[in-house]
Amino acid sequence: MAISVSQIEILRGKLEEMPQVEDPDRKISNLEAIRMMASSIRDLQSRGYSIEKITEILRESGLEIAPTTLKSYLTKVKVSPAKSNSRATNKPRRSSATTSREDKKKASEKAVPGVESKPASSTKNSTGVTPVPPGSFTPKDDTDEI
C-alpha cells in the first residue's frame, strides 16, 4: 500500500518529537565508548599519560581495546566530535568522473618546488603536436582543415 507525502511529513514530525530513550545499561560499541570519553582521555594525554597507559586503564575497567585502536578512534572523534556518524553528511556528492577530472587538473597545476616541468620526450610527438612549456600555450584561430 502506498503512502502520501503529507502522511510521511506527519510521521516524520512524530518521530522527531520522540524523546531519547534513557537506558544506561544498553551495550555500545568501543568507538561510541571512546566518543563519550574523548574529552577525559584527551585531558589525560595533556597531563602526560601515554596512549598505552590510558589503554591499560581502560582495559582494567573492562573496555578491551588496543592502543592503536584507541588512537584511531580518537582521531575519528577529533574530526567529527558533534556527529555520531561521520558518513551521514548532507553534502551533495559529485560524480567520481567529475571529481577525478578536477583532481587531475588541480594536481597538474601544482608546481613542485625545485622540479622543472619538461616534455616527456625531446623528439617531436607522433601526433604532430609540439610540446610547449607550461604557461606558454596560445591558441591559434580555427581553420577549415580537418
Rank of each mutant, 00 (worst) to 15 (best):
E64L: 01
E64Y: 00
I65H: 02
I65Y: 00
A66N: 05
A66P: 03
A66S: 06
A66V: 06
P67H: 02
T68A: 02
T68D: 02
T69E: 01
T69C: 01
T69G: 01
T69A: 02
T69R: 01
L70N: 01
L70Y: 01
L70P: 01
L70F: 02
L70G: 02
K71H: 15
K71L: 15
K71V: 10
K71F: 15
K71T: 08
S72H: 07
S72M: 09
S72L: 11
S72D: 03
S72P: 04
Y73I: 06
L74T: 01
L74Y: 00
T75G: 13
K76L: 09
K76Y: 04
K76S: 11
V77M: 03
V77E: 07
K78S: 10
K78C: 04
V79G: 10
V79Q: 12
S80Y: 03
S80F: 02
S80L: 03
P81G: 02
P81Y: 01
P81M: 02
P81N: 04
P81L: 02
P81W: 01
A82W: 11
A82V: 05
A82I: 06
A82T: 09
K83R: 03
K83Y: 07
K83E: 07
K83P: 03
K83T: 04
K83W: 06
K83H: 06
S84F: 14
S84M: 09
S84P: 05
N85V: 12
N85Q: 05
N85T: 10
N85F: 08
S86G: 04
R87T: 15
R87S: 15
R87F: 13
A88S: 13
A88H: 14
A88E: 15
A88G: 11
A88N: 14
T89M: 06
T89Q: 04
T89H: 08
T89P: 03
N90F: 14
N90A: 11
K91M: 11
K91F: 09
K91D: 05
K91Q: 11
P92D: 06
P92M: 11
P92Q: 09
P92C: 08
P92I: 00
R93N: 08
R93V: 00
R93H: 08
R93Q: 08
R94F: 13
R94M: 13
R94Q: 13
S95K: 04
S95A: 05
S96D: 06
S96L: 06
S96K: 06
S96C: 07
S96M: 05
S96R: 07
A97E: 14
A97T: 01
A97C: 07
A97V: 00
A97I: 00
A97W: 12
T98N: 15
T98A: 13
T98L: 12
T98G: 15
T99C: 09
T99I: 09
T99M: 10
S100F: 12
S100A: 10
S100M: 10
S100Y: 13
R101T: 00
R101G: 06
E102C: 12
E102D: 15
E102A: 13
E102P: 14
E102N: 14
D103Y: 11
D103M: 09
K104C: 04
K105W: 14
K105P: 04
K106R: 10
K106C: 07
A107D: 12
E109G: 06
E109N: 08
E109T: 08
K110T: 13
K110N: 13
K110W: 13
K110F: 13
K110D: 11
A111K: 12
